[in-house]
Amino acid sequence: MSRRLWVVAGVLVGTIAFSASAAGAVGETVGSCIFEELEEAQFDGIEGEGLSAVKNLKDRYKAGDEHAEEIKTDFEADLEDCIEAPNPILPEVTEIIWGGAAFVVLLALMRWKLFPVVKNLMEQRTQRIQDSIDDADRTRAEAMEVKASYEAELLDAKTEAARIVDEARQQAGVVRADLQARAEADIAEMRERAAADVEASKRQAIADLQTEVSDIALGAAEAVLAHNLENPEVQRQLIDDYINSVGAGQLGQQG
């Protein structure tokens, strides 16, 4: 950095010196310029030289000479060239010399006193920035560790949640299967019960019908028997048959 600074300073001083030499070659004051133009004035067709020529030009212009008017216009343009503003870029040579010297002195002072301070400040600032960067890196590393830990915990939580969901799904499946099995068993039982009820109803109807038929048949038989049993001879015959059967051992005994 120091070398680059000296190069810039050298270029700047060289430029100022070159400009100063050029300005010294062409530089003059407005008064001297106008005086020189008046002193050297000499016009075509106008008598005299210098101030007399200017006086004659004035007279002829006032007399209405057109040629004099043109010369007057040109001469005024030459004078106006003398009162143009000084060069805004190139100062006076002395000013350049004193300015350059001051600049060199100032540069030397800065190089001697200010630059070490600035350098020290810059180094301190650089160190602070580096420390901040290191802290940021460390904090970032810690944050990354925390993030990794959180991500691991999150992964564990997701895994646990997935396991719980899976278990819940399995349990739901088991419960659903159990309920379905129970429902099917209930349906089967209801069907069997309904079939049994139908069968029982059918049997009961058949039994009722048989009872009804037997009652009718027995009623008819009892009516016939009652009519026949009114006959004493029939009664006697029944008793005799009983006595004969008992005597022959044909009637069994009931306990």
Binding site: L238, D241, V246, L251, G252, G255
Partner: peptide
């Protein structure tokens, strides 16, 4: 006794 010989209608 306990024996029954039933030949009734």
């Amino acid at each position: 006794g306990d024996e029954v010989i039933d030949g009734s209608v």
